[in-house]
């Protein structure tokens, strides 16, 4: 999408490793001996937050460029994302169907929603890229100012962002 930056620079990878390591260390410490720094929240809530921090670090690593980013690393990243996304969708859809028929009471609608968000977003973005070339940015724009300028230059981008948000809300409503 025009005006959108997907990948952080290499620094993001280092930040991601640090965030992930902190999250992991806190998760382990919480598992070994449950503790609560904030009395308002339980140890379990602390544990959930620490896991979230560890995952945030991993996401940051995944969306950061290599020190020497070139054609090959970009191609490898695209391929690995395709495979990972395919496997993730397969697992979510499999679980949604299995748990819908489970004897245990389980609301599988969240799983359908998760699968739907990914697929709907992908199909929308892919077809925007295919049929509205003016709206598509083939490479990341570098600075925030440049990105904002790009959005300003192309009002259609804003409309498309709104359309995507609308479609997401619609899919949430349908599958919830």
């Amino acid at each position: 999408m025009k005006g959108m930056k997907v990948m952080y620079d290499y620094n993001g990878k280092i930040k991601g490793i640090i965030i992930s390591a902190i999250g992991l260390a806190l998760t382990i410490s919480e598992k070994i001996h449950p503790w609560a720094a904030l009395p308002r929240f339980s140890a379990d809530e602390h544990l959930a937050f620490f896991k979230w921090v560890a995952l945030l670090g991993l996401v940051t690593i995944a969306y950061s460029k290599e020190k020497l980013e070139d054609d090959r690393s970009t191609a490898i990243r695209l391929r690995s994302l395709q495979i990972a996304y395919m496997l993730q969708t397969a697992v979510i859809m499999g679980m949604a169907l299995t748990l819908s028929h489970s004897t245990e009471p389980f609301d599988a609608s969240i799983l359908f929603m998760m699968a739907a968000i990914g697929i709907v977003m992908h199909l929308l973005l892919f077809h925007i890229g295919l049929y509205f070339d003016d709206l598509w940015e083939y490479n990341d724009t570098s600075t925030l100012g440049e990105r904002l300028k790009n959005i300003g230059r192309n009002k259609w981008s804003l409309l498309v962002y709104l359309a995507i948000s609308g479609a997401m809300l619609l899919s949430l409503t349908i599958f919830a």
């Binding site: 290599e66 020497l68 070139d70 054609d71 090959r72 690393s73 191609a75």
Partner: peptide, 22 residues
Amino acid sequence: VKVSKQTIHSIESARFVPSTVL
């Protein structure tokens, strides 16, 4: 050419087709 050594190796062994720029 500001790429990794592995990239050159992959191109040489015809496993990876470089972009026009590269």
